[in-house]
Write a protein that binds this DNA or RNA. Structure first.
Length: 283
DNA sequence: AGCATTACCCGCACGC
DNA sequence: TGCGTGCGGGTAATGC
């Protein structure tokens, strides 16, 4: 379930309850099951299970697309859902999802299950969170990330804006859907070289990123496909997965192209590719 | 040489 | 049945 709004939605759900379940903060681990060993990136699956045994959950947070579980003295558990991961709280006696890769059984009878059909997801248990999330770029809503700062960061790259926005060391939290939506809202072509964006476009882009993320958060994320449930943002997509449909702004047919090996959706009329002369240093 | 950027690839399930 | 597709990102390969 993986972009910032979806991960944040899961974090809130674990912290505050939702989906008909109550919060798991305060729950104590009675038993740890690792059903597919490679899911534990660090430490060893055996050490992972041993360290979590008896631990009490202190809180749940998020950094970029990582979910963060605070197990107090037992360490921090980071969870990355990648393409197809989800966390489910199970009531006593409830059967775990089909592709559960690890399972924490609590003393109160409930359980937390990591469901992950494609096996891309990973989890870490560390004392220092920086080992796992230290490389990430700024949070999109970080108040220190001003339009001026964002513009200056864009100026340092000559690559296409879309793959840059999806690079987590540049900005943490955007994925394929919200990037397409933000570029559409900002009326910027996804293949525009980053350094060719001017200060006005940079400001508009940052505002658009925050707007689409806020919209996704308000809708409890986007849930698409057979796998996910709950989120309502897919009903608000302007361009994502809407190739062939009319642009909501001008009516032109939405196009789908491949950019950076990823499916990309945009309006060829509203988002015109404008390239600056690189030798002129990106005016 | 050393960086920034790009391509490949990792399970699985679904629609056409 | 077979093929294309996918809310991601580590790593190898290539480009500048």
């Amino acid at each position: 379930m993986p972009e910032l709004p979806e991960v944040e939605t899961i974090a809130r759900f674990l912290r505050e309850g939702g989906r008909g379940k109550t919060s798991i903060v305060g729950a104590v681990v009675a038993e740890v099951q690792v059903l597919w060993p490679q899911v534990v990136a660090r430490p060893s699956p055996r050490a992972f299970a041993a360290q979590l045994q008896g631990a009490r959950l202190r809180g749940v947070g998020r950094r970029g697309k990582f979910l963060l579980l605070d197990w107090g003295a037992s360490g921090w558990q980071a969870v990355h859902l990648r393409m197809s991961g989800d966390l489910a709280v199970l009531q006593p006696g409830e059967v775990p999802p089909r592709h559960t890769r690890w399972l924490l059984r609590f003393v109160d009878g409930r359980a937390l299950a990591f469901d992950n059909p494609r096996k891309f997801g990973r989890t870490w248990l560390v004392d220092d969170l920086g080992e796992v999330v230290g490389h990430l770029g700024p949070e999109p809503f970080d108040e220190h990330l001003t339009p001026q700062h964002f513009y200056a960061r864009l100026q340092r790259h000559r690559r296409q804006i879309k793959p840059l926005l999806m690079t987590q060391t540049f900005l943490a939290g955007l994925g394929n859907i919200y990037t397409d939506e933000a570029l559409f809202r900002a009326a910027i072509h996804p293949q525009t070289p980053a350094r060719c964006l001017n200060a006005t476009q940079a400001e508009r882009l940052l505002a658009a990123i925050r707007a689409v993320l806020r919209e996704g958060l308000a809708a409890n994320g986007a849930s698409i496909d057979w796998m996910y449930r709950g989120g309502g943002f897919q009903n608000a997509f302007r361009v994502y997965h809407r190739q062939g449909e009319p642009c909501p702004r001008c009516g032109t047919s939405i196009r789908r192209i491949i950019v950076g090996q990823r499916s990309t959706h945009f309006c060829p009329h509203c988002q015109v590719l404008v390239t600056c002369n690189p030798s002129l240093d990106g005016g």
